[in-house]
């Protein structure tokens, strides 16, 4: 059976979650590998949460927020951007491929982009294979 990665997607309430909704209502193909978690702001996702998801067996983590400048809380996604840069470096040190984490900007009107980003990310994680930290049952 082909490996189907399990991906946690933290979607910001204002833009990306609406974008995901739009992808759905526009009947665009969105992979079933994603488990969406709605957060009020992408910057709500502290690095802890991403690492925790990976430690507990997620094969990839996607954080999606508003485009720079569009944040409902004005500066939230700038915090996220800085954290993501730091997190990428950190994942390597933990023995995880930084490719298992992705930060994407998806606007509320970006239904097609949501589909594009999620499909590409699933493909990428598929190539990386299962998360080595995932406990085998």
């Amino acid at each position: 059976m082909e490996f189907e990665p399990r991906i946690v997607a933290f979607l910001c309430n204002w833009c990306s979650y609406t974008g995901a909704d739009l992808a759905g209502t526009s009947r665009l193909a969105v992979p079933a590998n994603l488990k969406a978690v709605r957060v009020m702001c992408s910057s709500r996702v502290e690095p802890d949460l991403v690492i925790k998801a990976l430690m507990e067996g997620a094969d990839g983590v996607l954080v999606a927020g508003c485009w720079p400048g569009d944040c409902h809380y004005q500066r939230g996604n700038y915090f996220t951007r800085r954290r993501a840069a730091m997190l990428k470096a950190l994942l390597g040190a933990l023995g995880l491929d930084p490719g298992r984490f992705r930060l994407a900007w998806i606007a509320a009107s970006d239904g097609p982009r949501y589909s594009e980003v999620t499909n590409a990310f699933v493909k990428q994680v598929k190539e990386l294979g299962p998360n080595p930290l995932r406990k085998k049952v």
Binding site: M40, C41, S43, R44, E46, H72, Y73, G76, F79
Partner: peptide, 10 residues
């Protein structure tokens, strides 16, 4: 408070 959670993550 807007309950956005920015404070919780910083």
């Amino acid at each position: 408070c807007q309950a956005c959670g920015l404070c919780a993550s910083v």
